[in-house]
Write a protein that binds this DNA or RNA. Sequence first.
DNA 1: AATGAATGAGAGTTCATTCAT
DNA 2: TATGAATGAACTCTCATTCAT
Lengths: 225, 225, 225, 225
Amino acid sequence: MKCEYFAHIIHGEPRLTTRIPKPTSTMRKAPRQARSRATIEVILESAARILGERGWAATTTNAVAETAGVSIGSLYQYFPNKLALVEAVRRRHFDEVLAVLRASTDTATPRARRIAAFVDGMITVHRRFPAAHRVLLEEAPRDAASEATHRRFEMEYRKGCDAFFIVNRRGNAAVDAEIAAQVLAAAVAGAVHDAARLGLLASPPFRRELIALVESSLTRRRAAG
Amino acid sequence: MKCEYFAHIIHGEPRLTTRIPKPTSTMRKAPRQARSRATIEVILESAARILGERGWAATTTNAVAETAGVSIGSLYQYFPNKLALVEAVRRRHFDEVLAVLRASTDTATPRARRIAAFVDGMITVHRRFPAAHRVLLEEAPRDAASEATHRRFEMEYRKGCDAFFIVNRRGNAAVDAEIAAQVLAAAVAGAVHDAARLGLLASPPFRRELIALVESSLTRRRAAG
Amino acid sequence: MKCEYFAHIIHGEPRLTTRIPKPTSTMRKAPRQARSRATIEVILESAARILGERGWAATTTNAVAETAGVSIGSLYQYFPNKLALVEAVRRRHFDEVLAVLRASTDTATPRARRIAAFVDGMITVHRRFPAAHRVLLEEAPRDAASEATHRRFEMEYRKGCDAFFIVNRRGNAAVDAEIAAQVLAAAVAGAVHDAARLGLLASPPFRRELIALVESSLTRRRAAG
Amino acid sequence: MKCEYFAHIIHGEPRLTTRIPKPTSTMRKAPRQARSRATIEVILESAARILGERGWAATTTNAVAETAGVSIGSLYQYFPNKLALVEAVRRRHFDEVLAVLRASTDTATPRARRIAAFVDGMITVHRRFPAAHRVLLEEAPRDAASEATHRRFEMEYRKGCDAFFIVNRRGNAAVDAEIAAQVLAAAVAGAVHDAARLGLLASPPFRRELIALVESSLTRRRAAG
DNA sequence: AATGAATGAGAGTTCATTCAT
DNA sequence: TATGAATGAACTCTCATTCAT
């Protein structure tokens, strides 16, 4: 049986059509065998790499399959469409990021170590496929289904940032803790991303300066006017 | 089982292409009549908006032309290809950003005002088409020709950041001024970009916290280990 | 007054649309002033050159106008469409070719000179814009109107070839004079065209051999079996 | 007032384009399954026919695919661009032509038969798609890669003509054998092509006269002055 | 389960032609 | 008359996705 599109017939908007895939559960079939799991693994790895290297638009499912060493047919056996593939990559990445935040809020470790953990974590997360984070967060489109995942992540991320800020701040810092936390997190992300672009992720001075920035931001006496 | 797509019924999005055109001079022909200049203006405006809204891949030349209210032929009369169009948008944007930096380094104005000018400038620049900066800087591809423009901008930007840092820092701040400047600039850009994404660019608390971040970063006593 | 095309209505083929221009009198307006005549002249010259250099498809009306140093608007002032322009070039060229034939059939001059005149004439005609003849005769499309012109030329050309063959043959040559004439003419054209392609049009050995070919063809004793 | 075209609504003819694609390897991928080979076959056949019928410019890849009964995507699966497609057709055709020359130089067969083989071969080669030879040799553009193929063919063709002339000439014929051979070959090609245009390829008188032309050219006593 | 040939909507781009100035 | 900006149908080519093997 064939899938027909009636959409544009119904209410004629001009050209701008696209193939935004239907809300399907992200994974077409649960991997039963070890072989399947391995295939999925290699596809996701390949997808993450290519996504990071080329960006969403230049990432083709065919290229992902080829790089992964599987046939395009196999890819579609596990992921119903390009978006679902990206979604799977996203989910992984988000988990990593949240793990970093959790570690940086763990009051069992000393404060200095927590701050370092935060910065180091962000650096590490971005290291494998430098641009992937940005692509996943901003460049790659989402459908209704991924939107939910996204919002969930965003919320947890926010909470994590808040916690990080509150747990680690010093002095009578910002009035508006929530916003300050958001600003700080985004600032760190921006700096890390920029460093990734310039190939400075591994540079100790960069790390030192970033930690200094975080530290001073957490330590500041009063919000400027 | 098969299914229909309703997504695009609601707000159809364009196809996500990739084709990177071969390098050509940025502008196809110089406008001789006043009418031309107006056409170019409206095309650039439309391009900037759509680029910011949809990203490079989802920006179609046809959509740009349509939004601008001109024919696709007119667009190609002035810009030999999609890349050249983006390049023209880029050039404008870069000029604006550099102007902000210059203003923030002008020692004729008091320090507090300079810092505010920096933050406000960054906010303003990103306000018209929130995501455009990121798209122009990172997402949209470049050819050999644009690469040069890019490097030139990057250099001037760097110098501007350095100057801003050196002119405005307080105390014995960072050892590694150059890196610190880079980190600070990227951090501000990250925060601004994030705020744009969340629609907080106009929010006073955001502005206040960002200024605080910059201030504390410039004032810090010693680089952390 | 404007008009529709019905020609192809008669035998409906599928998609393959095009802009085959309507049967308008070839020239839009008769040149009244010397200036007009000069404009037309320069346009035709430019068209012939470009046609010869690039072939029909790569010949754009804009390029013709630009090379001629007039505006595209002016071109369309005198020629209602691309085809009409080519048609005008064709007419000229055809006249030249027929003149050559006439000269080669003039019994007032000695036979050897007539043969040389034929070969030299063909060479000369092809010299200005080497490939133009072929383009005009075969590559460029014709509409109903040009078809007639074409047929007229073809007929006169044929008659000229016949006359040339009959006037100049020696011995009891071919039984089938008409076909022999046609073959000979086409052969000469083929050789000349090939030489043009190879840049040998000016080469004396080429001329010598071509004359020899014509001579021997006219002199042969009997048609082979 | 406006001139509307209704022609193409009904059956239109193709647009005449120009765009010359950048050099790419001729075949995109090697066929692994039998099905592929059949697809390629049918595409090439269709391409040769349409090329011969309409010329390079009016040959659209869509028309080729449609005529071949495959999708446009399939065409591009095997040929990276229009030029590569033509190149493949060319290669085939060239092989055929060279085979004819080889047969006409084979001293194992009697002279009269060799000459007939030459003429008949040229006729046969041009018979399937009358104008294809000319289009392939002259009209269709080439890129750097095809240029090489072309030169190779041209050289072999030249050598073949030389051999044909030398093996088959009679008496003390031409001084300048090389040029004479070239002239003769081009003459035959011209005559054959002309006959193809007029639908005379199958006509016995045409064949007879052409053979007579070749014979007399090979037999002539002295080069004329 | 896996493969890869086939599909076709849709994107970028050209150029003959029109018409306001 | 002359100009050249504007138009848009038609063309080449891509890539997400399907399905026969």
